[in-house]
Amino acid sequence: MNETILIDESGKRTDGRSIDELREIKLTIGVLKKANGSAFIEFGKNKIIVAVYGPREVHPKHMAQPDKCVLRCRYHMSPFSTDTRKNPAPSRREIEISKVIREALEPAVVLEDYPRAAIDIFVEVLQADGGSRCAGITAASVALADAGINMRDLVAACAAGKINNKIALDINDVEDKEGSADMPVAYLPNLEQITLLQLDGILNKSQFTECLEKSLQGCKMVYEIQRKALMEKYFGNDLPLDDENTEEIKEE
């Protein structure tokens, strides 16, 4: 099989990264005035905006649950987000991704604290570059935190995959299309729980373990970025981000 060269002789990938390197991530919190919580993430060339509305009343009312909150999630790609125009109607892919994003976030949200209410999460992909579900989960989780919703942990997501027979972190669009495996993972870093796991592509037993462990490492790196973004938003520059101070906040 003629595989496209995705890693050159010096170990650099098509976008100049090493195999253990994430794309550049820029996470901004509180970008929408009307939403209860919001976040904008630039994950490589991905540009994704997430709005969280709620807890609010459920319509239609019969959808409400007496003992807990209903979490609703929509993942949607803008028609201009891809190389060829995407039909704005929800595709089967988007319906599945909406479901897996909701299921990735749900274990982190304390649904029991908001009985009879709904929390809505809208993930809009403005520009897609591979790994948009992971970037969406990462942004949605901080948007939930920004909305002040009780959570057990943040949800950090990152993919790993196989390109040119090597396991690489954070697969981009070209690597997803030309590479041979892609494994998106979402993780609760403090509770050590995996809430999203998908794979397409072929991995042998040792590659599978390596890929899974590498993506968890990626999730931990993403988590640090989430934490930093939340600290900057809520504590500003008053609080230098050294270890001493972060420890204090944890204890409080």
Binding site: V100, E192, Q193, I194, L196, Q198, D200, L203, F208, L212
Partner: peptide, 27 residues
């Protein structure tokens, strides 16, 4: 898994979670 014992597709579903060890066990 395919005939060579390689993993070809995975999907985690439902609103719960697994630990790394549980995933390795199922794998």
């Amino acid at each position: 898994t395919n005939s060579n014992g390689e993993y070809t597709a995975i999907q985690k579903g439902s609103a719960g979670s697994f630990t790394l060890d549980q995933i390795k066990y199922v794998a």
